[in-house]
Amino acid sequence: MLIDVKNINKYFGKLHVLKDVSMTVDKSDVIAIIGSSGSGKSTLLRSMIHLETVDSGSICIDSSYLVKDGVYAPKNEIGAITSKMGMVFQNFNLFPHMSVIKNLELAPMLQKKMSKEEIRAKAESLLDRVGLLSKTDAYPDNLSGGQKQRVAIARALMMDPEIMLFDEPTSALDPELTNEVLITIKELAADNMTMVIVTHEMGFAKDVAKNIMFMDNGEFIEKGTSSEIFNNPKHERTKAFINSIIK
């Protein structure tokens, strides 16, 4: 098991955003989390990679506890635990003052685990993989949204994550640009990357995810294979959500 989330609770003030949420992710799983806006999907994903802190429960990443029964690992160990994961944001969060290749190289350069030449070679091969080798020296502002997101994916891959977390990777994109990003993610799936994807793209979720989890109001109401969830939803609210989104 790569990720084991057990009974986590999260409050924003009085707002109970995650209610005793549990989920597990095995190696090479591709899990899509769906649910209406405000149901807590982002908060769950962000909690896994320590962008939010939970109030109780446990999160175990590749058999190291990030948080165990509400108690976090020591500060100096957290970085090593979360480094198993890469994250792709809705708004890309590329560094606007750096060229595409520098965006990819920054973190590995600071980490100093590889030589400059190795880092450059790796960055170029990843840019090639997402189809953007020609944009090596471009600045983020001169890229389309779809290109930015593919650069963001390549940047995350530079750190060799075992797990990739995607938080609505195509929601900020014009509809005609979503496909290129979805294709990139599908290619990762084909390479057996373990992924947790929050998405509103139902067709994509159906296609790429082995398991779909429906979140509503801070809880997982239904989990299942994509055909179970889409063709035969058991819960009323899942039905309502799926009907609302497949217009």
Partner: peptide, 14 residues
């Protein structure tokens, strides 16, 4: 500066 910049740095291990 958008808070996403800090978050991107954090998840990249800076």
């Amino acid at each position: 500066i958008d808070k996403g910049q800090y978050e991107a740095c954090q998840v990249l291990g800076l």
